[in-house]
Simulated assay, not measured.
Amino acid sequence: MTGAPRVVVLAGGVGGSKFVLGVRSALRARGLDDPTAHLTVVVNTGDDLWLSGVRLQPDVDSITYALAGVNDAERGWGRAGDTERVNGELGEWGAGWPWFTLGDLDLGTHLARTGWLREGLTPTQVLERMSHRWRLGARLLPMTDAEVDTVVVLRDGTRLHFQEWWTRHRATLAPARFENPGIGDALPAPGVTEAIAAADAVLIAPSNPVVSIGPILAVPGVREALRSASAPVVGVSPIIGGKVVRGMADVCLTAIGVETSAAAVASLYGARAAGGVLDAWLIAEEDAPAAAEVAGLGIRPLVRPLWMTDASRRTALGEAALAAAGV
Rank of each mutant, 00 (worst) to 15 (best):
H110Q: 07
L117F: 03
G88W: 07
L102D: 01
D104M: 08
A80G: 05
W99I: 15
D82V: 00
W99C: 13
W116N: 04
T101R: 02
A80K: 03
L90G: 02
L107P: 04
T114M: 15
T83F: 10
E84Y: 12
T83G: 05
R85H: 04
L111Q: 03
L117N: 02
T101A: 12
R85T: 03
D106R: 00
D106A: 06
R85C: 04
R85Q: 10
G115E: 07
L107V: 09
E92H: 07
F100A: 08
F100V: 13
A80R: 04
F100C: 01
L117G: 02
G81F: 12
A80S: 01
L105F: 13
H110Y: 09
G91H: 02
R113V: 01
D104K: 00
N87V: 05
A112H: 07
T109G: 09
L102R: 01
E84R: 05
L90N: 00
R79E: 12
N87Y: 11
N87W: 14
W93Y: 09
W116A: 09
G78V: 13
R113C: 10
G96V: 15
W97K: 12
P98E: 13
T109E: 10
W99S: 14
R79D: 05
G115Q: 12
F100S: 00
V86Y: 11
G88M: 05
G108N: 08
A80N: 04
E84K: 00
R113K: 08
W116R: 09
A80E: 07
R113E: 02
W99G: 12
L117S: 06
N87E: 11
L102M: 11
G108V: 08
T101N: 04
T114E: 07
T83R: 08
W93V: 14
W116S: 08
W97A: 15
G96Q: 06
T101I: 09
N87S: 11
W116I: 08
E89H: 09
G103M: 15
W99R: 06
G81E: 05
L105M: 15
P98A: 13
R79Y: 12
G91R: 01
R113F: 06
G108H: 01
D106H: 04
